[in-house]
Every structure is written in structure tokens, then in C-alpha cells.
Design a protein around this nucleic acid. Structure first.
Lengths: 130, 130
DNA sequence: TCGCGTATGCTAAATTTTTAGCATGTCGAC
DNA sequence: GTCGACATGCTAAAAATTTAGCATACGCGA
């Protein structure tokens, strides 16, 4: 009986755990624990994982005697969802504004090659758009 | 006595309220209420607003007899914070990946002019970077 | 002025979330 | 086999969050 809620409706720890799983990929309870802020106890993490699983957000596979947890929503989908939510919340729904801010924030971190690749993507989108 | 926590540490409703405030700008309690999922009662919203204010996340101004609430962290800063968190969580810390995904998700929505402007920003960053 | 609609101040209870810990199981080293 | 380290299953209590509602105040229109 899954009662999966959209990301905006997750409780604090639920959200933190899913973030850790997306960030580092399929993980054991101990690995997830290590990635959480204000590190809770091991049994606290496990209890939360079972709740997340009961709610349909994650599943586990048994690797030997230990469980490896994975989100049910793929990384690709979660990315899109996070992007959409962020654009809607902070950028008036405007992808351009989001990209501008992203460029402003990251320009110093992007290599020449990366910028070139992005330029190419934009040129391609430009050509296909018109 | 402010005890402001980073965004990742906010409870469900705290986070929803801040999202509404960033999305729609300074708002009254009734306006915030209208923007929340699973709309809580008016007095529930007000109690939460007082908690958020006690914790130092928001402040209010009196406009006539009613309060207008504003986040303490500016939109600009919140944008950066949200971007950074999203890049770290879903894109291995890679801004390029984030931009690629953003372009993929949004290419159909961007006008020719918007794409041109983005191309220009990238060209400028390219020139300044190297 | 009065009444109504809507506001805030405040409290505490209801609900949800988070946590700890016991019982038991597994695996590898000795 | 025994022991220790670490695992899961499960429960329930502690803690945090969310909610409702009373008392009072304010503004506006009749």
C-alpha cells in the first residue's frame, strides 16, 4: 500500500535521506547514515528507511546479508522534478532566468570545453527551434 | 534569539511556506495559506509563521492592520543556495550537467531571443575564462 | 455607533516524525 | 564452536511539528 507523496511534501528526514540516495547512488543504511546532517543513530536511520519503503519512495535489494536502498523514482526523473520545482519557485517559471543564474554562479567553474559544449547545445536548440 | 537552520533542515510546512514566499513575494498570511498544498487552516498558517519568525527565517511588516511576511534571506541568495544544493544533490556537483539537463528540459520553451541571449552569456564567459 | 469580516496573540492538544533500544540473525576470524 | 562486529525486525516512547480554537483587536460600511 504505497502512499507516495510529491517531494515538496516529504518530512525533513525523509527528504534528507532521498537527497543522500540521489547524491551517492544505491547505498546501505550505514552509508546513508554517514551522509545525513545531524547524524542520527543507526536504528533511527533504519526505521526511517522502512517508513520510506512502506510509503513507496524507495526499495531495497539484498546484497549478501545487508540491504542496499534505491529510490523508486529514477535519477533522471528526480532531476527533472527538482529542476521544475526550482524554476517555478525561484525563477517565476522562467528557464532562461534559471540558466542565467546558473551561468552567473558557475562561470568560474566551467572549463573552456564545457562552455563550448554548452554553446553547441544552445546553437542546436536554436536551429531546431526555428 | 534566532536559530535559523539551512534549508535542508526545514520541516515540511516550514519549507512549503518559504517556497510560497519566494515564489510570490511578500505576502499576508491569507495569501500564503492560499499557496500551500493541502491547505491548512488560517490559524495553523499563522502559528507556523510565528515559528518561522521566531527561528529567524522570516520577518513581518505591518501594512495597515495586517502583517506582510518576507523571507530574511534575499531571493538572490536563496536562488544561489537552491541552485548549489540541486547541483550537488542531483548532478554530482557539475554545473555543466545541470545546464545540459536544464536545456534538455526547457528547450521547447525557450524563444529564439532567449537562446540568443544565453549564447551571448556563454560566449562572454568563454572569453573571460580564457 | 454597531455589526461583520478579518486580523493578531496565544495556548495547548492532536498528529506526525524521529529516535532509541531490545531481540535476533549473519558472517568471518580464531 | 565461540565471539565480536555488524546486520535486520520490530516496538514504543520522545520529540517535533502541525493544527484548531478562544479571546481580543481593527477597519470598513451601513
Amino acid at each position: 500500500m504505497s502512499t507516495r507523496r510529491p517531494p515538496a511534501q516529504l518530512s525533513r528526514r525523509e527528504r534528507q535521506i532521498l537527497d543522500v540516495l540521489y547524491q551517492r547512488g544505491p547505498s546501505t543504511a550505514a552509508e546513508i547514515q554517514a551522509g545525513l546532517p545531524d547524524t542520527p543513530g543507526y536504528s533511527a536511520v533504519r526505521a526511517l528507511l522502512r517508513i520510506l519503503e512502506d510509503k513507496g519512495h524507495i526499495r531495497h535489494q539484498e546484497r549478501g546479508a545487508r540491504y542496499v536502498y534505491t529510490p523508486k523514482v529514477s535519477l533522471e526523473k528526480a532531476r527533472r522534478s527538482a529542476l521544475a520545482h526550482m524554476i517555478q519557485t525561484f525563477f517565476d517559471g522562467s528557464p532562461e532566468q534559471a540558466m542565467t543564474a546558473l551561468l552567473d554562479a558557475s562561470a568560474g567553474d566551467l572549463s573552456g570545453e564545457e562552455l563550448d559544449r554548452l554553446a553547441e547545445l544552445i546553437a542546436k536548440a536554436r536551429k531546431e527551434g526555428r
